[in-house]
């Protein structure tokens, strides 16, 4: 399959564009925002979208566009670390389960069944309610639920790789299970894990917004998309822009990441790499 053509599907390009916008917002937030998000100006409160405030202002007179730009930071941070936790714990667990089989496999798989059996967001709420609200606890809670997802995906694909002849050849070359997992299995799973990470990233953004919405995510005054939605709730009748813009930011980011994930899955599809 000649390279570039596979990366030209419309879904993938839209996904890349939306994800790019999200990352640009984060990068921009460190250098410049239209207004200072900490600056309260009651005289300018609840202004409808206009040229000076494209997304309007909130009940403290803060610029909504600036808050969304800065809020992207929090989403990125929480989702990234949560995916890193999930990948860092889940992938090695999955590799281990596939390499050892037997009891190890049962342990990992039944353990992930256990986590899957519990409603994720509800438990994350419990988690943060016990440990106290805040970005760090939200990250841990989301990360814990990412772990079995990565463990399963890794194990499933690794099991099929273990039956391949090149693994047999590596065993004949005297390599142990762990060496084979690291040198042969993991590199061949990279594409799959990148796709899964992208999708879990979208889930992370959504989960962070959910936790912040119920007040268990990032605490004020750190701007967060979920909490902006919550704040907007009581004013939705006369200031709908307060809900519309953060809601759109969440929806477009999640949509973009999902399109990116699906697009990458098609582009990196191992079935297209084989033979010819």
């Amino acid at each position: 399959m000649s390279g570039a053509a596979r990366f030209r599907s419309p879904g993938l390009l839209i996904g890349l564009a939306l994800t790019g916008l999200f990352l640009t917002a984060v990068a921009l937030s460190f250098a410049w925002t239209p207004y200072d998000v900490g600056q309260v100006d009651v005289g300018r409160r609840l202004l409808a979208p206009s040229w000076t405030h494209p997304f309007g202002t909130d009940h403290f007179g803060r610029d909504v566009l600036s808050m969304i730009i800065v809020g992207a930071r929090n989403s990125l941070l929480v989702a990234t670390v949560a995916v890193a936790i999930g990948l860092g714990l889940g992938a090695p667990l999955g590799l281990w389960a596939a390499a050892r089989g037997g009891l190890a496999d049962e342990l990992v798989m039944r353990g992930s069944d256990l986590v899957f059996a519990l409603p994720a967001l509800l438990l994350a709420i419990l988690f943060t309610a016990v440990l106290g609200p805040g970005a760090v606890n939200a990250i841990i809670a989301i990360g814990v639920f990412n772990t079995p997802v990565f463990a399963r995906v890794t194990r499933g694909a690794a099991l099929s790789l273990w039956t391949r002849d090149f693994v047999l050849a590596a065993r004949v070359a005297g390599k142990g299970r762990w060496a084979i997992s690291v040198t042969h299995i993991a590199p061949n799973l990279a594409g799959l894990l990148i796709v899964q990470a992208t999708i879990q990233f979208a889930v992370g953004v959504l989960a962070e917004a959910g936790l912040s919405y119920v007040g268990l995510g990032a605490q004020p005054p750190t701007p967060s998309w979920g909490r902006m939605l919550n704040d907007a709730q009581t004013m939705i009748g006369f200031a709908p822009w307060l809900a519309i813009f953060p809601g759109m930011a969440i929806a477009l980011t999640v949509l973009g990441l999902n399109l990116l994930g699906d697009g990458l899955r098609d582009a990196l599809d191992p079935r297209l790499e084989r033979r010819g």
Partner: peptide
């Protein structure tokens, strides 16, 4: 040492031939 049946499946597709051939050397 051994040679397996499937000339497509018996090599890790991500490795270069040099590394594939050298894989048993640590023995």
């Amino acid at each position: 040492q051994a040679v397996f049946q499937d000339p497509f499946g018996s090599f890790d597709p991500r490795w270069r031939v040099e590394d594939l051939v050298a894989e048993p050397l640590p023995l």
